[in-house]
Structures are given as C-alpha cells and as structure tokens.
C-alpha cells in the first residue's frame, strides 16, 4: 500500500498497481514515439518530438509529424483513455464485466445524436456535433434507466434494456441517413465508421477538454466507487452518499463515452476490454481507474498502428481491428460464464 498525494487528491494504491501503471505509461510513451516515426520520410526522433510541441524544425517534419501524425496519435491516446475509464466506471457500478457503453446503447445513442445534428443543422463544426453526441447519449441513458427501473436497478435488466435501446437508436440513425441530403449523409457515414484517420488538433482539443473536466470528478469519487462495490449498505455505513455518488459517476461515464464518440465516431470493444485487462494486470480487488485509462490508450494506439501497418489494399478503420480482438473476448466471457463461473 502507498498513498500518492497530488495537492488535495489522494490516491491509495497498491505497490503492484503503481508498478503496472508505470509500465503501461512507459509502453504508451514508446508506442507514441513509434507512431510519430512510423512511415517513410526519415525524420529523427528529436525533430519529431519538437514538431509535436510546435517548435519549427523544417518543412516535412512540421507538416507530417506536427499536423498529421501527432494529432492522430494523440486522438487515439485520449479517446482510448476516455473509453477505458468510461468502461471501468460502468463495469464497477453495475458490478458486471459485461457492461460497456458500446453494448448497452449509450455509444449508439451518442452516434444518433451526432447524426441528427448533422442532419438538422447541417453541422460541420466538431463542437456542435459533440454537443449533439452528449445530448443523444444522455437521452438514451435516461431512457434505458427509465425502462429498466422497477423498484431499483438490476444490472442485468439494465444491460438487456440497453441492448434493445441500441437497436431503437440505430434505427433512428438509419432513418436520418435516408432522409438527409447526399452531402450530409456522406459526412455522417464517414464519421459513423469509427476511425482516428485524419483527426486534427481541433479533435485533440475537444478530447482534452472532455477529459480535463470529467477525469478529476471521477477520480474525486474513486473512493466512493470502490466502496460501492462492497454493496450499498456497506457504503452507506461508511458514510458514502450512495445516491449522489452513483448518479455523478454514471453521468460522468456516459459523458466520457459520448465525448469519445464525438471525436472518433463509435469504436467498439475498448471500453469492454481495457478495464478487464487492467484488473488482470494489477490483480486489484476493485476498480482501477488510471490503469484502465492507460490500458485503453495503449490498446487504441496499438490498434491504430496495426491498421496502418497493413498493406494498402487492407487499410481498414481501426474499429474493425478492435472488434476482431474484442468480440472473441466477449464470447469467451460468455462461454466461461455459461460453464458456471462468475458472470
């Protein structure tokens, strides 16, 4: 056990969690540098790093690294972290490793919100689309809650209601796509694919803003989250305002997922897999927020690098790769659960 203190923020952490966190950070840094260097053009490491922070180093590096590779890699890192934390909070709140914003309709709701803003106001500004995604995700989450609320919330009922709502909001998206004009529809479709290709510093700014607002709030409530895992009664006995803490955390988780969808479009399975891998690596008894964030960032950045390494005819959006890894993991979870293990 050790306690990290940064100003008023105190994080109790196990030695192993700390070590895993450092290792993940190191791996992430290495992969980030690799992402900057990857591809032809022969720009040195030093020049690349200078270009990222905006020190002019000459023609090719300033553009290729500074305007193309750096925003893309940073977007992958930030969105991966958002998805990792969002999934970790949701899985902890529902006490179920199968809960993930991309399965229970929340990411799809965010997508519908964004597509509706593109349709109704022909939005091209990322900030407006992001606002639409947030409204869509919150509305969907509220509907899921309302549909599954019956003298309290049962996590599995929540998941089922979420799967149903996912189909409903996707139908709305499809309807909007058939109704909007061709130019907007192309715009919306390109975004619905879920990709970090061609992201700019504006995307990075939106992602940083969302993370900077929400992550401190979630970390502030991290202790409540761990205590809630022991059950409502225990949490109440320990003086946690159960209702408030849970609502704040749930809203933050939904907003993080919505922010991620707004920046990159829906990318599946990171929010499902990252927290589980983080738990496994740290062998922690409860939710591990920062390792989940780092794991999510590492996974998405790695998936994006993998997609770039493929030959030119096989350049798929990153979501295809995350699904190819994440879906078998989910099937394995279900399979293990049906053998009578913990579900």
């Amino acid at each position: 056990m050790r306690i990290l203190r940064i100003g008023p923020l105190g994080i109790t952490t196990h030695r192993r969690t700390f070590a895993v966190g450092l290792a993940l950070l190191a791996a992430l840094a290495a992969l980030f540098v690799f992402a900057l260097m990857q591809g032809q053009s022969g720009i040195s490491v030093l020049d690349s790093l200078k270009a990222v922070v905006g020190i002019p180093v000459g023609a090719p590096a300033d553009f290729i690294v500074g305007q193309v590779r750096a925003p893309r890699a940073l977007t992958a890192v930030l969105v991966g972290a958002m998805l990792g934390v969002s999934g970790a909070v949701l899985q902890s709140l529902t006490r179920n490793p199968l809960a993930s914003p991309d399965f229970i309709g929340i990411s799809m709701g965010a997508g519908t919100g964004a597509v509706l803003t593109i349709w109704l106001v022909s939005a091209t500004s990322l900030w407006i689309t992001a606002a639409g995604a947030v409204v869509g995700a919150l509305t969907t989450a509220a509907l899921i809650l309302a549909l599954s609320w019956r003298r309290g919330i049962v996590p599995l009922r929540l998941i089922l209601a979420g799967i149903g709502m996912g189909f409903v909001v996707q139908a709305i998206t499809q309807y909007a796509l058939t109704r909007m004009d061709v130019h907007d529809a192309g715009n919306a479709l390109g975004w619905l694919v879920g990709s970090v290709t061609g992201r700019t510093w504006t995307h990075v700014t939106v992602a940083v803003t969302v993370l900077a607002v929400l992550l401190p709030v979630i970390l502030w409530h991290a202790r409540s989250l761990r205590t809630l895992e022991m059950g409502d009664d225990a949490a109440r006995a320990l003086g946690i305002p159960v209702g408030v803490a849970r609502s704040v955390l749930a809203v933050c988780s939904v907003l993080l997922a919505a922010g991620a969808v707004a920046v990159t479009g829906p990318i599946g399975f990171i929010a499902l897999v990252a927290p589980a891998l983080a738990l496994r690596a740290t062998r922690s008894a409860g939710v591990t927020l920062l390792p989940s964030a780092l794991m999510g960032a590492l996974l998405l950045l790695a998936a994006d690098q993998l997609s770039q390494l493929m030959p030119a005819t096989l350049q798929f959006p990153v979501g295809v790769f995350t699904a190819a890894v994440g879906a078998p993991y989910l099937l394995w979870l279900v399979w293990r659960a049906s053998r009578g293990g913990p579900s």
Partner: peptide, 13 residues
Amino acid sequence: AFIGGLIFALMSR
C-alpha cells in the same frame, strides 16, 4: 428494428 427494440427493452422490464 425500431419497433422490436422497444418491445425487447420493455420485455426486459
């Protein structure tokens, strides 16, 4: 999908 999704969500309730 729209109609069925709603029925599904209500069934879970």
